[in-house]
Design a binder for these strands. Sequence first.
DNA 1: GTCGAAATCAGTAATGGTTCTTATTTATAG
DNA 2: CTATAAATAAGAACCATTACTGATTTCGAC
Lengths: 131, 131
Amino acid sequence: MPALKYSRQREAVRHFLMTRRDHPTAETVYTCLREEFPNISLGTVYRNLTLLAELGEIQKISSDGGAEHFDGDLSPHQHFICSRCHRIYDIRIDGIDSLMEKARNASPGEVETCRVNFYGVCEQCTSKDSA
Amino acid sequence: MPALKYSRQREAVRHFLMTRRDHPTAETVYTCLREEFPNISLGTVYRNLTLLAELGEIQKISSDGGAEHFDGDLSPHQHFICSRCHRIYDIRIDGIDSLMEKARNASPGEVETCRVNFYGVCEQCTSKDSA
DNA sequence: GTCGAAATCAGTAATGGTTCTTATTTATAG
DNA sequence: CTATAAATAAGAACCATTACTGATTTCGAC
């Protein structure tokens, strides 16, 4: 494993994600960081997002059929994903611990993390129907 | 909505998924079906997988950083995904109903379905370490 | 401070999964 | 049987992501 060396770009990527409440894609991170680093490379953004995710400092969210999303919020929470607009909302429900406990007895390996996603149509999309 | 017309290829895709216990990718479905339909097109496989998923007859599994997987098993169950070999195992735990009930009170929309994934390293990969 | 090795970078080419296009075939209603 | 709309095969196009390149930056040792 190569020693980790400081880089302004990686720090910016981390900081950017920390100060966001939504779940940007690599493209969004890239576009926004370009204001501070006019010639940051998209490859650099990807490399650091992947690296930070491996280090466990951010979360990668594989929603559905598009780009990956990234989440800087490490506190335990779940996601509600609108099947129409594909927006990702944070929600918080308890009882996840006991869920993982049950999973440990049913899994063919050591359970480390758990992702819970709920799907449906969000109110914003529903209200557009009646309009 | 266009009227749905019978097609041998779509029926084969559905049947193939139903008789599998694992979670093939489109590529796998394609390769296997070619034995029965030597010139079935990869596009046809994708189109029908997507269609069947929209109809709710199969499930699309977005695991992580690779191809999508498909699951013909509609009975409620969860997945354990090995972070090393990326294999997907079925597991079954109860209490999902109450989880969804909680989610209904916390979601910005009507909760229709829920996906629960557990991550860790499977025993098969762990045992390779000690070898 | 400066030197050198290793990590990181910007820029760009390449890859891989998926979708789209077009001409052709097939299913089904009349 | 015929007309019509849907489905298909083949392959090009697309887009997110990764890999490669040579130049730049970090950082410990001197």
